[in-house]
Nucleic acid binder design. Structure first.
Lengths: 243, 243
DNA sequence: AGGAAGTCTTACGGATCACAAACGGCGTAT
DNA sequence: ATACGCCGTTTGTGATCCGTAAGACTTCCT
């Protein structure tokens, strides 16, 4: 109940412009209709070049891009759009292979939906991606909680009034945990919500947790703040349910 | 041995209401039985109008809807339900054509299963759709009952305000029992609803009950909280009969 | 009392998991 | 151009947990 509600309140998702790119009129029609009824303003084009052009012209808040297109394909269109803009992109595809998915994400796509998909799921994904991208733009205020003070704007983190010398990832990780204290997160969750990855090496999380511990724990070998929940993941303990 | 298992999700999928709509008594019976043994509460109706009525009346968490129905067909029922509610819908069908599928998804279905399907696949799909839809909702809150306090989000269990050091399985087992106190469950039930297995070695349950007793019973050899119901299974006694 | 079925207890091997340490790549600053 | 810092990955190690099996014990029934 903490985050999603607030970001929804601050950043309204209605009336956002979505650009739908698909050469199949049926799919394009269905997708557009559903997005419209979900409160989005929808523009449609049917090939890659038109997509690049339209993106530059109307600056949509998000693009739904079919992977298979006449002319340049979706992946290439995605790459070109991304090279000049950070507009979020959701890729549509008939293929479901892992390789395919990775190539899509590498090209800069923010999410990936395989056909056949339900329009409802599409709307959910669109909302989710939009929320994420809008949340990054919103100016956030500093947060004091427990011994921590997180200032996202200044990118400064303090603990007991002393400055923590954190790296980018460490800051993001700590900021997320301070925003969601006393809640256990799996490595997948953290990878997804802090790193923004949908898949990847989970040990990345493990190592960064260890590095963060070195900077915030009195005794890093016996964590009391950032504790591990065996078989689940990690939790930042601000409530004293321990001991 | 084990299933895809590891739901480790934030939201408990047990005790969710599923409405099964099918005019074929055999199919309806089989589907319902499998869903029940997977821990769902199942209601059944046999035609489209009854489905619309039942949906409004009992507000199920999910609907399994046959595509072929007397009166209005599944697609139409799906559309009507969707017009007034966002309850997730899984469509059952004998047909497998692409067109058919698209029309189903267009009507607002969240997933689509073609007959013949394995009951196991059905349960997996139901879980998957439910998990997606529940993920958008509020996280579950802590539960206080008797001497126990269960916080699923934090993955913390306390007894008389002291922290219990439980493993994953022990936590899941205790959480389930605290949610359903003073009710006897067979080992099969527990295996199905806590482990998510449809079959397996029942001694697994026995051993875990014993391990849990070691951590919550004053005298594990003479249980007073987690008692065994001879010939039936186990029960968590929270109503204070004696003492 | 005796047998059968159900339950409890203990033990063990495999599997999983968490952690530490180190490595190489990449970008940036010097 | 070089050095440094950060990041993601890999490897090895130790610890934990889980499921199963096997035997002892208890309860129920005849």
């Amino acid at each position: 109940m903490s985050e999603p509600a607030r970001s929804l309140a601050n950043n309204d998702l209605t009336d956002r412009r979505v650009l739908v790119v698909d050469d199949d009129p049926t799919v394009s029609e269905v997708v557009s209709e559903y997005l419209r009824s979900a409160g989005f303003i929808v523009d449609r084009v049917s090939d890659g070049f038109a997509a690049i052009d339209a993106e530059a012209r109307i600056s949509p808040d998000l693009i739904v891009l079919d992977r298979m297109l006449p002319g340049i394909d979706g992946i290439e269109a995605c790459r070109r759009i991304r090279s000049s803009s950070s507009t979020p992109i959701i890729l549509l595809t008939a293929l479901g292979s892992e390789d395919d998915r990775i190539r899509g994400l590498e090209a800069g796509a923010d999410d990936y939906i395989t056909k056949p998909f339900s329009p409802r799921e599409l709307v959910l994904r669109v909302r989710s991606v939009l929320r994420r991208s809008l949340a990054e733009l919103a100016p956030e205020s500093a947060l004091d909680r427990g011994p921590f003070r997180i200032d996202p704007a200044a990118r400064v983190a303090m603990m007991n009034s002393v400055l923590l010398n954190l790296t980018v990832r460490e800051f993001d990780l700590l900021a997320f945990l301070v925003k969601h204290p006393d809640q256990a997160f799996s490595r997948e969750d953290l990878l997804s919500r802090v790193w923004g990855w949908t898949h990847g090496d989970l040990s990345t999380v493990t190592v960064h947790v260890r590095r963060l511990r070195e900077k915030i724990e009195p005794d890093p070998t016996h964590p009391v703040l950032l504790t591990t929940v065996w078989g689940i993941g990690y939790r930042l303990d601000l409530k004293e349910h321990t001991k």
